[in-house]
Computed example of a mutant assay.
Amino acid sequence: SSPAVPPTPGDPVDPTGPALPPPTRPSGGPTKTPPAGGTTLNGTVTSGVEPNCLLLDNYLLIGGPRDLLKPGAKVTVTGRVQRDLLTTCQQGTPFLVETARRG
């Protein structure tokens, strides 16, 4: 049998696509999963420097309803930061949107 090769990161995430599930962890002990909607952000959505990239307070919005999340929209979003997520955008800390509403 051949030796195990560690996995390599996949393609960057398209920020207009659906939010990805949290990465799985190897078994061997209990793990804690952060609660859904762990962080709430409020403010006005701005365009990123790359096409289809949306920012809110220096967070890159990943997923969420694109009919609501548009440049200039005042919104409240809940979700979680995913710092290790690779994206096609060149700015912002990735934030996986779980819910979004105007306001």
Results as ranks from 00 to 15, higher is better:
58 N>D: 15
29 G>I: 07
65 P>H: 09
40 T>C: 03
73 A>Q: 11
48 G>W: 04
9 P>G: 05
57 D>W: 01
61 L>C: 03
76 T>A: 11
63 G>Y: 08
102 R>G: 10
80 R>E: 15
92 G>A: 09
91 Q>V: 10
20 L>T: 09
74 K>R: 15
49 V>C: 00
80 R>D: 12
100 A>F: 03
42 N>C: 00
11 D>W: 02
10 G>Q: 10
49 V>S: 14
21 P>V: 07
32 K>C: 07
92 G>H: 08
100 A>R: 01
46 T>K: 08
27 S>R: 12
34 P>R: 12
64 G>R: 04
14 D>A: 07
33 T>R: 14
42 N>I: 02
56 L>F: 07
103 G>L: 06
65 P>T: 09
37 G>P: 05
45 V>G: 02
89 C>V: 03
90 Q>F: 08
16 T>V: 06
65 P>G: 04
103 G>D: 09
28 G>A: 08
99 T>E: 11
60 L>C: 00
5 V>R: 13
92 G>P: 05
51 P>G: 00
58 N>K: 12
68 L>Q: 12
47 S>P: 03
8 T>R: 12
91 Q>E: 15
3 P>D: 12
40 T>G: 02
2 S>A: 12
46 T>Y: 01
48 G>N: 02
84 D>W: 02
91 Q>Y: 04
46 T>C: 01
63 G>N: 08
86 L>R: 15
17 G>Y: 06
63 G>P: 05
101 R>S: 15
32 K>V: 14
90 Q>W: 05
5 V>Q: 13
59 Y>F: 15
6 P>R: 11
23 P>H: 11
11 D>H: 00
27 S>D: 14
89 C>Y: 01
32 K>E: 13
34 P>F: 07
23 P>I: 10
40 T>W: 06
15 P>Y: 07
7 P>W: 10
28 G>T: 05
90 Q>T: 15
12 P>Q: 09
24 T>A: 13
61 L>I: 02
67 D>E: 14
72 G>F: 08
85 L>T: 08
45 V>C: 05
26 P>L: 13
83 R>W: 08
7 P>L: 11
51 P>L: 01
37 G>L: 11
89 C>Q: 04
74 K>C: 00
103 G>A: 09
47 S>H: 02
12 P>Y: 10
3 P>L: 13
62 I>R: 03
36 A>F: 06
57 D>L: 05
3 P>K: 11
70 K>V: 15
